[in-house]
Design a protein around this nucleic acid. Sequence first.
DNA 1: TAATAAAATAGTAATAGTTACTAATATTTA
DNA 2: TAAATATTAGTAACTATTACTATTTTATTA
Lengths: 138, 138
Amino acid sequence: MNLKHSKQRDSIKEFLATRKDHPTADVVYTNVRQSFPNISLGTVYRNLTLLADLGEIARVRVGDGVDHFDYDTSPHYHFICKKCGNVIDLDMPVTGQMAAEARESFNGKIEGQMTYFYGLCSNCTPKILYKEKESLKL
Amino acid sequence: MNLKHSKQRDSIKEFLATRKDHPTADVVYTNVRQSFPNISLGTVYRNLTLLADLGEIARVRVGDGVDHFDYDTSPHYHFICKKCGNVIDLDMPVTGQMAAEARESFNGKIEGQMTYFYGLCSNCTPKILYKEKESLKL
DNA sequence: TAATAAAATAGTAATAGTTACTAATATTTA
DNA sequence: TAAATATTAGTAACTATTACTATTTTATTA
C-alpha cells in the first residue's frame, strides 16, 4: 500500500506541529475543520493512526481513556493533571535504567516501558496566601 | 452513603482473590456468574469501581484499552505481553526515585507515577531449537 | 493530456468498554 | 416488624474508536 498525498493529512500534521499540549483526536478534528469544513472524524482518526505508525507523530496514553497525540516523537516523559486533564512534557532525562532492572527479574523479553506522572499542575495547585498560611499555623 | 453488605460484592472480591492474572470486568462477570447466574455486568463494574475506590483492590491500566483488576494492592510493577495480552507481576522493588527526580524539574505537585513494561512474555517468546539455531548460524 | 489504477475521503454504521437509569429487592436500623 | 436506604438486575445510553462503502483525489502510464 503506497502512500498518496492528501491535503487533509498535511493539515492534521501541521496543526499538531503548532501545539505542545498533546491534543486528542476530537480536538484535532474541531480545529482542522476550520480549514476543511467537511473533513470527517474518521479521516482524522485514520491519519493520526497512520502518522503514528509511520513514526511521524506519537500516540500518548496517559490512562484517561482518551488517546492524545504528540508532534514531538523524541523520548520524553509526560505529566497528566488529575484536575484539568492537561498533558505536560517533563524536562527530565529518559534512561533505560528501570527497564534494565526489570529485565534482571523477568523471564521474557522486555521491549519497553511506559511511564507517566500524575498530580496537580501548577495552575491547579491551590495557591495558599500568606494570611491563610498563618491561620493554618504552618 | 453508608455501605451495605452484598453477597455479589463478596463474590467478586473472593473471585479476584483466587487470581493472580489481573482479570478484566468481563472475566470477573463470566466467572462470578457461576455462583450468581443473573448478576448483571453493571453490578460487576459498580463493585469493582467501589472496591478500587475503597482501596481493597487495584485498578490496573496497561494501555490495552481495558481495565484490569488486581487483588494485590501492594505497590508493584506490571508487565503486559504484546502478543497474548497477559498482565504479569514483576518481582522488582518499587522506588520513588523517578518521581523524586521528576519533582526537581516540574512546577506543580507530582502525586504519583504510573509505570508498566511491555514486550513478550516467556510463553510468547519464540523458542529457537538447536537445529534452527545452527541453520541461522548463530 | 487522457485513461487507468490505487489510495483517500466523507458520511455513516458498527463496535467495545463502561456508565447511567429505574423499578424491584436486600440489608440494616430502630 | 416496619421504615429507611443501599444494592441489584436489566436495560438504555454514552464515549472513543474502528469499519464499511460509494465517491473523489492523487499518481501512473500510455
